[in-house]
Simulated scan of single mutants.
Amino acid sequence: MNRWGLLAGAILAEVAGTMALRASVDHAGWAPVVVVGYAAAYTLLGLSLRSGLTIGVAYGIWGACGVALTAVLGTVLFGEVLSGVAILGLGLIIVGVVLIETGARHTERAATQEVRS
């Protein structure tokens, strides 16, 4: 699996664990899913780092996407309300992830050019 696939898996596992954590407030039977979700998330995040992602990029994208997906799913699954300011914040998270990825690609290209020189 490639590094981006591992990171995507880490994000989905973390969000699943967090949704299970919220569900466990009402039904304690969700607790094992919380543990498995977070264990899988950290394992996949570690594997994505081993595959070559830098910690700043991987953790930034993992955290930002996790927050955004958790907020949206909290609204859909649990009826939580997102204010206009929260929706603006989600937009800023998306912009931040794009900037992090763009900056990482620029840095990777510069490093590759230095090695070739």
Score class of each variant (00 low, 15 high):
L21A: 13
A23G: 04
A23L: 09
A23Q: 07
D26R: 14
D26L: 11
A28Q: 11
A28E: 11
W30C: 06
A31H: 08
P32A: 07
V34I: 06
V34L: 00
V34M: 00
V34A: 00
V35C: 04
V36I: 14
V36N: 06
G37C: 04
Y38P: 00
A39K: 04
A39N: 00
Y42D: 09
Y42H: 10
Y42L: 15
L45R: 02
L47R: 08
L47T: 02
L47Y: 02
L47I: 02
S48A: 15
S48L: 02
S48R: 03
R50K: 14
R50Y: 06
S51D: 13
S51F: 05
S51M: 07
G52M: 00
T54H: 13
T54F: 04
T54D: 15
I55K: 12
I55H: 12
G56L: 11
G60D: 12
I61T: 15
I61Y: 04
I61V: 15
W62D: 07
G63A: 15
G63M: 09
G63S: 14
A64K: 01
C65F: 12
C65R: 05
G66M: 08
G66F: 06
V67H: 04
A68N: 05
A68I: 09
A68L: 15
T70R: 07
V72E: 09
V72A: 15
V72C: 10
L73R: 11
G74V: 08
G74E: 05
T75I: 03
T75C: 13
V76N: 05
L77N: 10
L77E: 10
L77Q: 11
G79R: 12
G79Y: 10
E80Q: 15
V81G: 07
V81A: 14
V81D: 08
G84K: 07
G84W: 15
